[in-house]
């Protein structure tokens, strides 16, 4: 002891840091990553690895050489973006798709606004939407990948949502479509071949959700309000006409609703701060998702819904403040 340190109070700090929070998100993503790798095999490993590597490398290069600042990759946020981006891509997508996604996600969406904490839109989703619009063929072709388990027949044409949309457009009723394709809820819950890498196992995502809640990384309001809204919205339409509108459970388990509501809508930077704001945000996402699914031309609307609601976050933050102590 030579010189006494002097600083304003408080003198201790909780153990939580940006890095530890991001690490928790990575851990929560692991079950989904594991399932993806098991069922899509080497191609899933390739897309995950290339997406993460490109995201981290890009952030490093931009901070060091373009902004000439100390690198920020130590906070792990680029890793999270990389994994989420990869889980949003078809496992059979070529590596350069991941690279373009990383450029849009990290380069355009995140770093141009000033890096972590400054971006308006969720980087991974923006990357995914950019790819979906630019390369619709690649982004909607699934199958052809050989998994480590589950045999060689991991081949499928389209996602359940895509099949339903297609069928309805051709004038089939839901009953006919379901009879034809034999969707099972159990399959959707555990492993549902056909879909973006991260969409295939609902249970893996739910495990991640529970982990995040237990570690107090996120609060449940955004996720639950999205799920409830999707269920209620689809429930009403399903009751009106079960031959045209898919049922609530089908809507919850298919597509990116679970992945999006647990990992992407809850992104700190692009979601409201207060619980009340989070509920409004979640309801908005739920409604927009279902509007696109039922009435839009895309089979799936989760990404668009999150992006649209991202843009309303500053407004929600302004009007939804928590109650202050001693003020009516």
């Amino acid at each position: 002891m030579n010189k006494l340190l002097v600083s304003p109070s408080p003198h201790i700090h909780s153990k939580t840091s940006t890095r530890s929070l991001m690490l928790d998100v990575v851990i929560a993503l692991l079950p989904s990553v594991l399932v993806t790798v098991l069922f899509y095999g080497w191609s899933a490993v390739a897309i995950l690895a290339s997406s993460v590597v490109f995201c981290v490398l890009l952030e490093y290069l931009i901070t060091r050489y373009l902004l000439k600042k100390p690198s920020t990759i130590g906070d792990m946020s680029a890793v999270v973006t990389g994994i989420i981006l990869a889980l949003n891509l078809p496992p059979t997508a070529p590596w350069w798709v991941a690279m373009i996604g990383a450029i849009v996600a990290i380069g355009v969406t995140k770093m141009t606004f000033g890096g972590l904490g400054q971006n308006v839109f969720n980087p991974a989703i923006t990357g995914r939407v950019f790819l979906l619009i630019s390369f619709p063929a690649i982004m909607t072709t699934w199958g052809g990948a050989k998994g480590f388990i589950g045999g060689a027949d991991a081949v499928s044409g389209a996602t359940p949502l895509g099949i339903v949309k297609e069928g309805l457009m051709q004038g089939q009723t839901l009953q006919q479509i379901f009879d034809l394709h034999d969707f099972s809820y159990a399959q959707m819950l555990f492993v549902n071949i056909g879909g973006s890498a991260g969409e295939i196992s609902a249970i893996a995502i739910i495990i991640g959700f529970i982990y995040l809640l237990a570690r107090k990384v996120i609060r449940p309001y955004i996720t639950l309000s999205i799920l409830v809204t999707v269920a209620v919205f689809s429930g009403i339409f399903w009751l009106i006409d079960p031959s045209q509108y898919t049922d609530p459970l089908f809507n919850l388990l298919t597509g990116g609703v679970l992945l999006g509501s647990v990992f992407m809508a809850t992104d700190y930077v692009t979601s409201p701060m207060s619980d009340k704001g989070g509920i409004i945000f979640g309801v908005g996402i739920g409604i927009i998702t279902m509007l696109i699914r039922y009435f839009g031309s895309y089979p799936e609307g989760m990404s668009f819904a999150i992006l649209i609601m991202n843009s309303t976050v500053p407004l929600i933050n302004k009007f939804c403040k928590q109650k202050k102590f001693g003020r009516a």
Partner: peptide, 29 residues
Amino acid sequence: LTEEQTRRKPETNCIRCGKCAEACPMGLE
């Protein structure tokens, strides 16, 4: 307190996690 217990760590970007607002006993932001 020791160096490890009390030394402040370098400031990084706000990630808008809202943990400060959650912790504030006066309901401030």
